[in-house]
Simulated assay, not measured.
Amino acid sequence: MLSDAVRMHEAAEADAGGNAVRMAVQAGMESGRRRSWQSRFTKGSFIGLAAAAVAAMILFFIPVIHDSASHTSAPPGAVNWGELEKFKRLYSFDMEAATLDSAIRHNYIQMINHSAASGDYKITLNAVTADENRIIFLYTAEVAEGQEVYGTSSARMKDLSTGQYLENGGGIGGNRAASGLLNNRIYYGLSIINLDRNKPFPEQLEADFQIASVDTGKLGQPKTGTIVADMHYSPRLKVSFKLDPKFKEQQTVIVQPDEDFVLDGIEVTLEKVEISPLLIRTMIKIKNESDITWQNRQNIFEVVYGNEIQSITKYGIVHLGMTLGSGTYEGFERRYGSNLLDQPKSLNMILKTGTGKNAKEINVPILP
């Protein structure tokens, strides 16, 4: 139990065309700048947004690994988060920090600040941001005197038009204050919802939480979280809201770089990249069909130990960390944060392989 550090929670609950590419940039930007930036993508081959998704067989799943080193794009003070500044205490552990920097910089955020309470427990949904691929929401959990927040045992979201819970993409949270002082009765969290852009964009949503707590003084004890009798839980706390329609306007850019490189002696291709304001998804496939074996797929997946996308913008160099990796029938895909709203001048995928004298850094251009 890390009472003096951010505690990370990655619950994987599963409750549940054409040639024109419309750039996902903030509404209100000058149309001239938008057209100029959009033209940078004409060197690649684009896929219509209405194209059918390619089915893939998932071979293995690697969860996001957060270590003590910062994976973020810049020091926390680089962007003023305003009333959301308290969430920066998660910054060094949060692979979405650069994404949120970009969203907040361009006012691509919806403040909610609605609460639900029952007994000793209170939840506040502070803010959300979204695109057609995912929703990121920030929330605050609080407990009455005599309790300490262990975390949220559940943070999910329901599409009220269908009655179905959306796919949970994990999250992160903690009690630690930016000043280093602890207030264990207050907990700040971030959760991610994965969306399927082939389905209607959700409008009326219900955020649904359950807070886990322990008696005062138990939060720092080593066995906290392992003894069932020590844990207390709130009733389900629900906050309904309407998602801002501006998020529906930001469409996904899909480009095919067709850049070849070698992993573990096997020739592979960066076949496709999907870019939206909150997500970059890369698809890497084994180039030669005769090389597509289970062992080769496993080897190229495991040989890469460092993943990021380097984005160069007028705000500086941003390092977008990997948030998810999974195997496919022909290779693997990686998901990263995004700063599309910053209108990057270039995007490069950087893969690190090998150790010692065999260490190698592979730089694959997405947007030259």
Rank of each mutant, 00 (worst) to 15 (best):
Q204D: 12
P200H: 11
S290N: 09
I275F: 13
D264A: 13
R185S: 04
D230S: 04
I292T: 02
S276R: 07
I192H: 06
D244H: 05
G220F: 00
S191W: 07
S276G: 06
V262Q: 11
N198I: 08
Q210R: 09
S240C: 13
S213D: 14
M283R: 13
P222T: 06
D264C: 01
P200G: 06
G316R: 14
T293A: 04
I280S: 02
L195K: 03
T282H: 04
I286Y: 01
I275Q: 10
I211L: 01
Q256D: 13
N183R: 11
S191D: 07
Q256F: 04
F247E: 05
D260A: 13
N183H: 05
A212C: 13
Q210D: 10
Y315I: 06
D215H: 07
F247I: 08
D260Q: 13
Q256L: 10
G316W: 02
I292C: 07
G189C: 00
I266T: 00
Q221W: 10
A212I: 15
L219P: 05
K246L: 12
Q250K: 01
L195C: 02
K285L: 05
I280K: 05
L181R: 10
A229C: 03
E302V: 11
D208F: 04
F261E: 08
S276D: 00
M231F: 01
R185A: 08
P235E: 13
G189M: 00
K238S: 09
S276L: 01
L182D: 12
S234G: 10
W294P: 03
I266M: 00
T226E: 05
K287H: 13
S311L: 05
D215P: 08
Q250V: 13
F301V: 02
D215V: 08
K272M: 11
N299V: 11
Y315P: 03
D258G: 09
I309H: 06
I254C: 06
K242S: 12
S191Q: 13
P202F: 00
F209K: 08
W294Y: 03
D264V: 02
D208T: 02
I317D: 07
L219R: 07
R185T: 03
Y187G: 12
K248W: 10
S179A: 04
V239M: 00
G306C: 12
I192N: 00
M231V: 11
L195S: 06
L205K: 02
T216A: 07
S290D: 14
K285N: 14
D215S: 15
E259R: 11
G265P: 00
P202K: 07
